[in-house]
Amino acid sequence: MEEPQRRIRAAHSESTITVYQAYSPEIGGPAVRDGRFPGAWKRDRMTWIKPSFLWMMYRCGWGAKAGQETVLAVEISRAGFDWAVRNACLSSYTRGVHPDRAAWQRQLKHAPTRVQWDPERDLRLRPLPYRSLQLGLSGEAARRYADEWTLAIRDVTPLAHEIHALVNAGDLTSAARLLPEERPYPVDEEALAHLDGTR
């Protein structure tokens, strides 16, 4: 079955969705230990969450990039995630979605969240012909993410390293078995209508 051009794919339950981020050990370690982001985590900065494990691996180089050595699986409430999607603006102007560039800029200025649709990745981190969601949280959204929506934080760095080692060894079958199970995330099509764009 052919994948749609844009779809939210994620590991999720009836009440939660798992997103990924990568941080330095100074942030990641306390976050895992305490199950919440520490005071050093800046709540006034934009933070990007990624439901796609492999897109996170592409971004952080399997946890090898400086400042991204600790890969976190952050379980958040679906209610919070859905709020973030409903209140998001596309991160770039898209003709046909926005009336004009000025209207998009006004929307972007006031939106607490923003969306990018980036090419999904395969196990070798090569781009696939369909896209996955990245969600940027700022202001109110970043604070609510850290202090209200986050329910659990796990360190998945060892998993990232194990899968990467299997990929390097050419054992893609075993590597694929270890991937988190990401399924289409049920979201109201109307909630995504204003986010029907690509970068």
Rank of each mutant, 00 (worst) to 15 (best):
W104Y: 03
T16K: 10
M56Q: 15
Y130S: 03
F81P: 08
M46Y: 06
I8W: 07
D44P: 00
D196W: 11
A169S: 14
V167E: 06
D82M: 13
E120W: 02
E26M: 05
F53M: 07
D82F: 02
H12S: 12
D171N: 15
L195V: 02
E140G: 02
W149Y: 07
R36V: 05
H194S: 14
Y145H: 14
V115E: 05
K50L: 08
P119Q: 13
P51E: 13
L151I: 07
P129R: 08
Q116V: 11
E69I: 01
A102I: 01
G35Q: 04
E189Q: 13
V187C: 12
G136L: 09
D34L: 08
A146G: 14
E14P: 00
A40D: 13
A146E: 02
T70M: 07
F37M: 12
R86Q: 14
L166R: 14
A191C: 08
R59P: 00
F53S: 08
R59F: 01
V115R: 08
P119Y: 07
E14V: 05
P158N: 12
V97H: 02
P38C: 04
E26H: 10
T173C: 06
R6K: 14
P119H: 11
T94R: 09
E2R: 10
I8D: 10
F81Y: 14
R154I: 00
G35F: 02
E182C: 05
R199V: 13
A103Y: 00
W41A: 14
V115L: 05
A10D: 06
S138K: 15
A160H: 10
M56L: 11
E190N: 11
E14N: 12
K109C: 09
R9Q: 14
A193I: 04
A88P: 05
L90A: 09
K50N: 11
E190Y: 00
V71T: 11
I49W: 04
K42R: 15
L137V: 06
R199K: 13
G67E: 04
F53C: 06
H164K: 13
A141T: 07
D118L: 14
W41Y: 15
E3V: 02
Q68F: 02
W83F: 10
V187S: 04
R9V: 07
T18E: 12
G197D: 14
S13T: 15
G80Q: 07
K109A: 15
N87T: 13
L137K: 09
R144A: 12
G139V: 05
Y145E: 09
V32F: 03
A111E: 09
P4A: 11
F37A: 03
K42L: 10
R177M: 11
N87I: 04
T157N: 09
P30S: 07
S13N: 06
R124I: 01
A193P: 01
H98T: 00
R95G: 00
E148M: 03
